[in-house]
Amino acid sequence: MKRFCALLLMLTLSTAVTAHAAELKKLKAGYLPTSGHLLYFVAKEKGFFQQEGLDVELARFTNSGEGLTAVKAGKLDVGSFGTSAPLAFIAKGADFTIFGGQMGEGHGLIAKPEKAERFKDLKNFRGATIGAVRLATGDVVFRAALHEAGIDWKKDLTIKEFDSPAAVMEAVKKGTLDAGLVWIPYFTLAEKQGLVVVKYSGDVIKGHTCCRQVALTSTVKERQADLEHFLTALLKAYQYYLTDKNGTVDVVAKYVQIDKGDLLKDIYGGHLLVSPDPHKKSVLQFWDFMKKADYITSTESIDGRVNTKIYAGALASLEKREPKEKLWRTLEKEFKSGDGELHIKGH
């Protein structure tokens, strides 16, 4: 009899679990192996996606171009792939909508110590060979700054594009590049390997956005509720990131396999901004920078390409659930007050 009861209990439990799992909405999200994508990792590992009724599968990519190609082809529902990359796709007609954020800044220019001094001044980029990852946001930040400093990046220097930040770092080490643009954690790894971070992208354009949440416009329309739950999970991950540094590092270490001490420095060292806010104003300004720097040509307005309603809905839902939590009120205040102006530092 005891055995029968145990069996019945097991059956009931397994049926309940299966039923619960069946209720989860599947969502495939693309990421890059960077500590900057920690909101995805935390939301997945700490069960926030599941709490929001989502079964999120994370798919790893090497660079933003590849990831966005998968979004465009419908192989991914969402992805977090830079600011410049989705905007470059939009400039070429891709029907993408940005609906959230992930990270800001987080890029840096690396060089050998003996070459570092030269690159402190943008004017000294003339004649140099610089490596960058195709469509990387840091690449555009520096191109925009060079343009602002009166340097024509199409003529006055050579920018060689690579597939991955690891390849850029190797080329800098070998000396085939004078300097290279990489993202987090590669500038930390570069320092460990004897290279120097000459400038961080945040030194050039303070507060610039990087990886945005991107989906096909049709997906945003059809799955608005799911995406709101998705951002709600990312907001919870953000809360976790603020309150548990070691826990966050432990989670990120599963996806970015480097020393935990380096990850801690990477994530909380002041050169990475983490936020699920879409930061619409900054994105619109970045679009203008890209046009001014002759990186893209477009007469289209992208105002309608940044959807802030989903983020607003996610925040409102959390405020309703947890009215005493100050963080949601603070975030809402920041969201409503809008972003500050982005400025390129002229040095």
Binding site: A88, R134, K154, K155, K160
Partner: peptide
Amino acid sequence: KELSGKAVCVPDCCPKNKK
């Protein structure tokens, strides 16, 4: 170097044809 400096490419092949 001159040609490389002015080319900006949006990848459109990957990931299945990734190098």
